[in-house]
Design a protein around this nucleic acid. Structure first.
Lengths: 280, 280
DNA sequence: CGCTCGGTTCCAGTGGCCGGAACGGTGGGG
DNA sequence: CCCCACCGTTCCGGCCACTGGAACCGAGCG
């Protein structure tokens, strides 16, 4: 456990976005109060759920008085709650986030995931691709299983994870835009683009991706894409102790579950594709 | 199924907050752009996940050009995504919402809920109290079970639901502020405050609350509070067909599960109490 | 063709945002 | 004890980003 969380701490220090530089230097970005508000909201993370005023000011990079004003506004909106021990993300943000397409996906996937969870008795992950990262939508933990670094709502570099590889493999098959993604972080392992590209090709061919102790020692994952309407919208993975073998037994149930989820996705929801118009 | 959704439509039309009057008339409310942004975000709901531009403008009550500008900003922030079919809540809002204390609670409760779900084979609800309403944090559906009006992220009047009654009973035991809550909606059933107060007292005494077809015909629920550090922070309920009896068999497993969840809540999280400072 | 409705762009005026600065309170360490 | 570092709050003049009515374009439609 300490090993897992230790590794996770190391990872998250790299995962977390660049330390909130003042604003965008280019003229394009509007330094509106809305941007500041999201800087404040972005100060919170699943492993730092409660922050003091000063912590928010530091993390958001905003002047104290501005931070104070923005926080007061957010509290008034119900987006943030002020307790005696500090500020927290408010229930209102949960309610807003619950309207996202990803929650709809989670809702549909959950029964099937539960069933798989009963069978596999291992930790399950449901994640979507977001640029170079995967964002975890759901996680079904299993008692006394290998701890995994995934946290619901948080993201990890896609090329570190089985779900990420499964999704990258599909994406690359559609548009050969892999170069962008393969530009991996400096000096980090799996920095060999050619080998990684080959692994993606293999993953795509056999229909599943693997991660053997690449993110956490002792942890292995196999992942399959969830396809709906011809393209992958998410990925599902099982985590198990690396010492337990290659997990072939889990592959078929995993595939069946992913297929079942893909089939039960309403066509309207398939518009949750990765293709969102990134403005400018 | 059609019965359930029909009834839900009827309910949600009452549940949804007053149709977004212009702004607050009193001088206290700041009509800042942030307020407008949340008006826009509040236009979405779990059953209206995708809205066209005009729908957002109408629902938020903002002028067209203002709506346009605010939407563009929100898209730039990643809070909203623009697809060909309209606007949706963005993944970023899910990520922000995942930092709320309620998601932490959900995270801890989920394993125990899954286990109960296996045993009971009925739909489970996890909800918190928010003023006069309950907000659903988690819902484990069961195939071919009675459909329930609860939607994760959405709210229902507390006095219509078993979870709500369980929480109101606890709250009333702490502070006799029941009058506020008992002022129920005009002409709606269970408008008899005295009888309702008595029911709450009974619920508190026996440790669980019930709902027999009060919200949906054919649906019954029993709910127990989840207590941590001496006060109720959430409630857990099982839904079952009213024709199946009173659900006594489910009561003990339900109690055990709620107790187990309450026990496993870290003390730090208990600051998720209902007492948030509602400014001004 | 004229109408309605969805969606976008423009623009001048102004009021809301800006953030440095100053102020109280607290703790702790020399 | 004093001093300092830090947290949190408040104030205020200047300026610019927000405001929203209005005009515009295209599509559907009777």
């Amino acid at each position: 456990m300490s090993l897992g969380s230790e590794l996770f701490a190391e990872m998250s220090s790299l995962v977390v976005e660049a330390p909130h530089q003042p604003v965008d230097v280019r003229a394009g970005a509007a330094p509106s109060i809305l941007k500041k508000a999201f800087d404040v909201l972005g100060s919170f993370s699943p492993d730092r759920r409660v922050l003091s005023f000063a912590e928010v000011a530091r993390a958001s990079g905003l002047p104290k008085s501005t931070t104070h004003r923005v926080l007061a506004m957010l509290v008034e909106m119900g987006a943030v709650e002020q307790h005696t021990d500090g500020y927290r993300i408010g229930l209102r943000m949960f309610a807003v986030g619950a309207c996202s397409a990803e929650v709809a996906l989670r809702d549909i996937a959950l029964p099937a995931m539960e069933e798989l969870h009963r069978i596999a008795r291992q930790t399950l992950h449901l994640a979507v691709l977001r640029g170079p990262d995967v964002v975890y939508i759901e996680k079904l933990r299993t008692h006394q299983a290998v701890p995994t670094p995934a946290v619901v709502g948080a993201s990890l570099p896609a090329h570190w994870t089985a779900v990420g590889k499964a999704l990258l493999a599909e994406e690359r098959a559609e548009s050969a835009a892999s170069t962008e993604v393969l530009r991996s972080r400096a000096g980090r392992k799996m920095a060999d683009p050619a080998a990684f590209a080959q692994e993606l090709t293999l993953s795509r061919a056999r229909g599943y991706a693997v991660d053997r102790e690449e993110s956490v020692a002792g942890l292995a994952c196999i992942a399959v894409p969830i396809v709906a309407g011809g393209s992958a919208v998410a990925a599902l993975s099982v985590a198990f102790p690396a010492a337990a073998g290659k997990g072939e037994v889990l592959l078929n149930p995993l595939r069946a579950t992913a297929a079942r989820i893909g089939r039960s996705l309403p066509p309207a929801l398939r518009g949750s594709l990765l293709r969102e118009r990134h403005a400018r």
